[in-house]
Amino acid sequence: MTELNIPTMAQMVAEGKTPDILFWVGCAGSFDERAQKITRDICKILQHVGISYAVLGTEESCTGDPAKRAGNEFLFQMQAMMNIEVLNGYEVKKIVTGCPHCFNTIKNEYPILGGNYDVIHHTQLIQQLIDEGKLKAEGGESFKGKRITYHDPCYLGRGNGVYEAPRRTLEILDADLVELKRCKSNGLCCGAGGAQMFKEPEKGNREVNMERMDDVLQSQATVVAAGCPFCMTMLSDGVKHADKEGEIRVLDIAEITARANGL
C-alpha cells in the first residue's frame, strides 16, 4: 500500500498547478468516522489511477443540502454562494463528490446561483475508470461468487436518474449480484433524507431503515453496496439492529473497489 498524498487546492495553486478534478468530500465524508474511511478509499483510487485531483480541505463548507430540504432557503443560499465563490475563485471545472446529496445540490441547484461545473458522483467516476480499463478488480480481496446487492440512494437514483453506473462497477467483481425487492426507480429510502438524519423520526410503528432491512434480509446478500454516507449510517444501524453484523457487511462502492484492487 502506497502512502496517501492528499493535495489541497490551495497547495496546488501555490505550486502553479491546476488539478483535472476537484474531489468534494462533503461533511459526512469529512467528519463521520465511517465515511472518512470511504473518503480515503476514494483518494486511494484517484491516486492509483493517476488522476490529478485536489480537495478544498478547510475551505470546503456544507453545500446547504440539509438546510434546503428542511426549508431553510436562506441558509442554503448563503452556503451555496460562499462555496461558489471559493470554487469559482479556483476556476474549478470538474467536480467528483463522495455523496449523492452534495452531487445533487452542486449539479442542479448551484447553476442558477452562478456555479456551473461538470459534476459527477464517485460511483460514476469509478464506472468510467473501469470502462477505460484503468481500474480492474485484481490484487486484493476477491468478491467472486459473493452475494452482493445494491441500495439506490434517492438523490442519485430517482433524484438524478443514475441507476446503472453503480451497478456496472459491481459487475467486474464476478460476484453473485442480486437486486433488492424495491430497487431502481422503486427503491425504498434508507430514512435519512429530507434532513431526517438530523432529527428524531416522527411517531410511527417502525423505523424506515428496518423496513429496508426486510428487503436486504430477503435478498440473502452478504454484502450491501452503498453509495451515500447517510445510507451507510442507516443501513449499518439496520444490520446492527437485525443482529446480522457477523453475516452482512455494508460497504461503499469505493470501498469495494479499493478492496478488490488491494489499495
Binding site: 434517492c154 422503486n186 427503491g187 429510502c189 433524507g193 429530507g194 432529527k199
Partner: peptide, 11 residues
C-alpha cells in the same frame, strides 16, 4: 416533518 424527500411519491 415526516417526509424524507425521497421522491418516491413523485416517481
Amino acid at each position: 416533518w415526516a417526509c424524507t424527500s425521497c421522491n418516491a411519491c413523485v416517481e
